[in-house]
Simulated scan of single mutants.
Amino acid sequence: MKIEKANAGVLTNFEVLDFLRSRGAKTDPMGCLGAVTASECKVYEYLLKTPACNQTRESVFEFVKRSEGFRLADADKLNVINWRPSSAADAYAMIEECGRRFSRDERGDVRDEDEWVQEFLEIVKEALPPPPPKAEAVQE
């Protein structure tokens, strides 16, 4: 793989997964021989276990469009798209200074943080598909 332009921007996990799919990455190690390196196959296999595996370009664009009113930083959007929060605790962990930044709306009116978080999580739930189910623990 050759780097065409360094630091051209950040990529979501979905975009990396889409790129690896276009190059022919597979979960079968023998199927990875050729245009895709072994490390790229490992990244591909990992990303298949993240929310990125069920996302589409349209779902990512829909989330970005619908979340504009929340004044998220680009890094916040990236975290949300990559990890798809499903609880208020997840949202607070992913969005920097969540409580302080979003306790006021765009007009400066004070908003209830809990209402904001629930409204935000509803948008996430509607726009981004659910993550894959977690693998069950192996029983011996």
Rank of each mutant, 00 (worst) to 15 (best):
I3W: 02
E4S: 01
K5L: 04
N7L: 07
N7W: 08
N7Y: 10
N7V: 11
A8H: 05
A8R: 03
G9H: 14
G9P: 08
T12A: 05
N13E: 10
N13Y: 05
N13A: 05
V16I: 15
V16W: 13
L17S: 10
L17P: 03
L17W: 12
L17M: 12
F19Y: 13
L20P: 04
R23V: 03
G24C: 03
T27H: 06
T27A: 13
D28R: 12
D28Y: 09
G31W: 08
G31S: 13
C32L: 08
C32Y: 00
C32H: 01
C32N: 11
L33M: 15
L33D: 08
A35Q: 05
A35D: 06
S39G: 00
K42C: 01
K42I: 07
K42F: 02
K42E: 07
V43W: 03
V43R: 10
Y44S: 04
Y44V: 06
Y46A: 07
L47R: 10
L48R: 15
T50D: 02
C53I: 14
C53E: 14
C53K: 15
C53Q: 15
C53V: 15
N54K: 09
N54Q: 13
Q55I: 13
Q55E: 14
T56G: 14
T56I: 07
R57A: 08
E58H: 10
E58M: 09
F61M: 06
F61W: 01
E62Q: 07
E62C: 08
F63D: 10
K65W: 03
R66S: 05
S67K: 11
E68G: 01
E68C: 00
G69T: 05
G69C: 03
F70N: 06
L72T: 05
A73D: 10
A73P: 01
A73N: 04
D74I: 10
L78N: 08
N79A: 12
N79H: 12
V80G: 01
N82L: 09
W83L: 07
R84S: 07
P85K: 02
S86D: 01
S87V: 03
A88I: 10
A89K: 15
D90S: 03
A91R: 09
A91P: 01
A93N: 11
M94R: 02
M94E: 01
I95N: 01
I95T: 00
E96A: 03
E96C: 02
E97F: 03
R100F: 08
R100S: 11
R100W: 07
R100T: 08
F102M: 14
S103F: 10
S103Q: 11
R107H: 11
R107F: 12
D109Q: 15
V110I: 08
V110E: 12
R111A: 00
R111E: 14
R111D: 00
D112A: 09
E113A: 15
D114V: 06
D114R: 11
E115T: 15
E115A: 04
V117I: 15
Q118I: 01
E119K: 13
F120G: 05
F120A: 08
L121S: 05
I123M: 08
I123L: 13
I123N: 00
E126P: 02
A127N: 00
A127R: 02
A127W: 03
L128K: 14
L128I: 10
P129F: 02
P131N: 12
P131T: 09
P132G: 14
A135H: 09
A135Q: 13
V138E: 06
Q139K: 15
Q139A: 11
E140Q: 08
